[in-house]
Simulated scan of single mutants.
Amino acid sequence: MGLPSFDSFSPSARQNVWRGDELGSADMPVLGTGHPALDAELPGGGWPIGAMTEVLQAAPEAHVWRLLLPVLSRAVETRGGPVVLIGAPYEPFGPALAAAGLPVEALMWVRSEASAARLWACEQALRCADVAGVLAWLPQARVGELRRLQLAAAQHEGLLFVFRPESMAQSASPARLRLQVVPAEGGQMDVHLLKRRGPPLAMPLTLPARSERMTALLAASQLRRKRRMQELQGAQEEANPGTTVVRLDLRRKEGQSHAMDRVAVAA
């Protein structure tokens, strides 16, 4: 006897059947990511609560805050508890995070180089009901250890993000949601959805890697620099008609010597 077709189910039963070619609905609470394009591609429209989200990157610190700041600020505001950082590669810059809505006093930084100590700290943080979210950098974690964290997260009503090297993209993972973040041109980042409840996403999502305010400040700074160079060049040409202003590149290329080097050798 063959399996019944999807069309043979009653309308009420169809609502409880997930088809692999459709984006699944969330069977657990979610929090919006703060990025509408990303929300549209995630089951339920946000980061899962009570489950592990795995983020793969070439550089362990790349784009973490720009990607997660919106949801962390909301989680702290909703739950009132801290965000625990375990094994963060660099000390967070408090003023910038506070300006984005995440107060410094809401952060708890656990520093350790030992993989076992990081795993232990992560499990302990997940057992604290007041913790709003856990961000753990676990480059050496094995599948069995990640599975244990997934089970711990299922008993916790908070957020869990685990950061690992992008070289682990082809390895198995118990994470409910898995994505890879890659720097892109023009102050952007490409987000590849490697695992979700739904069909694979053929093309990555391109999200801003900088805040709108920072992007505006950088653009204004570049414009001011360009105008200063034009004014300087105009003033020099006015003082010395017929001359050409050349900007010297003082960075020495490999195998190439400067004129001063040749003078020194001749001497």
Rank of each mutant, 00 (worst) to 15 (best):
S221R: 14
E231I: 01
R225D: 14
A264D: 12
V265E: 15
A209I: 04
G94E: 06
A88R: 11
D190H: 10
A96E: 14
K253G: 14
G94Q: 05
G186N: 07
P36W: 12
E22N: 01
N240Q: 09
T206F: 06
A116Y: 02
A132Q: 08
T244P: 00
P208G: 03
P70D: 12
I49P: 04
R262F: 14
P95Q: 10
R19K: 12
V110A: 03
S257L: 05
A184N: 06
G34A: 10
V104D: 13
W137H: 11
A184M: 02
Q256T: 09
R251E: 14
L102W: 09
S112F: 04
E91F: 01
P183G: 10
A114H: 15
V162N: 05
L194P: 03
A175E: 10
P139V: 05
P165W: 07
Q15S: 09
S167W: 06
E22G: 00
A153F: 02
A209R: 14
L205K: 09
M189G: 12
L193R: 04
Q124C: 05
D21K: 01
L149P: 04
W120V: 01
S167I: 06
A26D: 03
P70H: 11
L194A: 06
V64E: 07
Q230I: 12
L207H: 05
R14S: 00
G255L: 07
Q140N: 11
A209K: 05
Q236H: 08
A125C: 11
R176F: 11
M203I: 05
S211N: 05
A106C: 04
P4T: 11
D21A: 03
P200N: 12
D130I: 01
K195E: 09
R197V: 01
L119E: 14
Q124R: 15
E61S: 13
Q170W: 12
E41L: 13
L31E: 05
V30E: 03
M1F: 05
E91R: 08
S73E: 10
Q15C: 00
P11F: 02
R142P: 00
R164S: 14
A202E: 15
E41V: 12
R197M: 04
V17K: 00
Q155P: 00
E157C: 12
E166N: 06
V182M: 03
A220S: 10
P174A: 07
G2M: 11
V83P: 10
E157W: 08
T243V: 07
D261M: 08
V191G: 02
L205Y: 11
E123P: 07
R148V: 00
T215Y: 05
M260P: 00
A259M: 07
G87I: 03
M260V: 07
L149H: 08
A40D: 13
A202H: 13
Q188T: 12
L160W: 12
T243P: 00
F93M: 04
